[in-house]
Every structure is written in C-alpha cells, then in structure tokens.
C-alpha cells in the first residue's frame, strides 16, 4: 500500500473544517483560563489564609489530574448534578478551568517580578487597590508572562484533541472518523499532525511579534 495524496486531497476540506473547532476550543479555553486564572491568582496571593488555601488546593488538584479524566468528569458528572451542558461547552469548560490553574501560577510568577516599589508608589498616591490591580499590576503581569501564556495556548491547541474522546468533532475526532471510512490512518493522521503543527507555528510566531511590540512600547 503506498502513500495516497489523493486521500489527503479529498479529505482536506473536512479536516480544515474540523480544525476550526480545535481553534474554537483552544481560544475559548484560553479566554476562560486567563480570566479565571487572574481570579485564582488574586485569591492565591491574598492575605486571607482561607482564600489562599482554597486557591492552592484548586491549583494542585487541576494540575494533578489528567485533563482527559477532567473532561470525562465534566461530561459524566455535571448532568448527574443537574447541569446539562452541551458536550462542547463541557469540553471548553474543562480545558479552561484546568488551564486556569497554570495561568494563575504564571501570573503569580510575573507579579513577583514586578518591583515592589511600584505598589508602594501607588499606595503613596492613595490609589485604591482595585485600580492598582486593574491599571498597574495585571497589565504588567500579562506582559511579563506573555511568553508563558503563549506557550499555554499552544498547549491548549494540543490538548483540545482530548475532546475527541467525548465525541466532539474537532480535528482529531474527524481524523479518526475519516480513517474509519478510508482505512488510511497514515495519510490522515499525518495531515492532522501537519495542521496542528501549522496552527502552533502561527501562534508562536504571532506570540513573538506581540512580545516585540509590547517591548517597544
């Protein structure tokens, strides 16, 4: 059996359409990850022992359990407790909530890199804590943490493949389906791999550009 470019050519449109879902899951997941990550980070470094402890537990748990298992938990257990999310929403939520644990730690590291003098200066000006966070700390933390956050997004593109397990028609799932019809796993999976690689290439290049832009300003 030789390599069939024709198979690839025939199925490319389906794979590309599926890649869109891969992108949707990872981008939506990333949005949840950053926003929720900021909240967890704030809790983690807050002076309240309780909040900080809960955040630490959250981070440890979501980083300690395989994402695949988390997706299954969301898929099977949420309906059980009466929260009947569509599969795609469950997958995005799982990806986002898990990734938030990592984003929180990235942001915490970035915050530590901001000189304490800035906070003191803001206090000296009588700036309220909310503005200090919104206007000074968070923007800088995101800037410092940008390379790591971009990395996290690339990771999400890759782990979005796990959503295939609960039947979401993203790139990996569609590749599986096509393979089931064509019996051409080599061609189809290589194509899928190339698509994943290209998506990540674009993201990492864009990330480098963004980093450069932010540095100049």
């Amino acid at each position: 059996m030789n390599f069939s470019f024709e198979t690839i050519w025939h199925n490319l449109p389906y794979l590309l359409a599926a890649a869109r879902w891969t992108l949707i899951i990872s981008l939506a997941g990333m949005a949840i990850s950053v926003i929720w990550g900021i909240c967890i980070c704030a809790a983690r470094i807050s002076s309240s022992r309780l909040l900080s402890g809960i955040a630490a537990l959250y981070i440890s748990f979501f980083r300690g359990v395989p994402l695949l298992v988390q997706i299954l938990v969301f898929f099977y257990i949420l309906p059980y407790v009466g929260l009947d999310l569509p599969a795609i929403a469950a997958a995005i939520a799982a990806v986002g909530l898990c990734s938030a644990a990592y984003s929180a730690e990235i942001l915490r590291g970035s915050l530590q890199a901001i000189p304490a003098g800035q906070t003191e200066a803001a206090h000296a000006l009588g700036m309220p804590p909310m503005s200090l966070w919104r206007r000074i700390l968070v923007p800088q933390a995101i800037r410092i943490g940008l390379p790591s956050l971009i990395n996290e997004l690339i990771l999400l593109v890759k782990v979005s493949s796990l959503a295939s397990v609960v039947g979401i028609g993203e790139l990996t799932r569609v590749a599986q389906n096509i393979t089931g019809q064509t019996y051409r796993p080599l061609e189809i999976y290589i194509t899928a791999a190339v698509l994943y690689f290209l998506i990540n290439l674009v993201i990492s290049r864009a990330g480098l550009l963004a980093e450069k832009r932010l540095k100049v300003s």
Binding site: M1, I154, V157, K158, V159, S160, S161, L162, S164, T172, A175, Q176, T179, P185, L186, Y189, I190, A192, A193, Y196, F197, N200, L201
Partner: peptide, 23 residues
C-alpha cells in the same frame, strides 16, 4: 524537536498504533 512538540500526543499515538502497520 519542533515537530514533536508542535503536535498532540494523541495524534502521535494514533500514527504509531494505527499507522504503524502500514509502515
């Protein structure tokens, strides 16, 4: 290094397990 790091583990696994016999 770049290719392996740029693609999901699941796809690599499928390639090896399902695609392997064809190689």
């Amino acid at each position: 290094v770049e290719v392996i790091r740029g693609t999901p583990f699941m796809i690599q696994l499928f390639l090896l397990y399902y695609g392997g016999p064809y190689m």
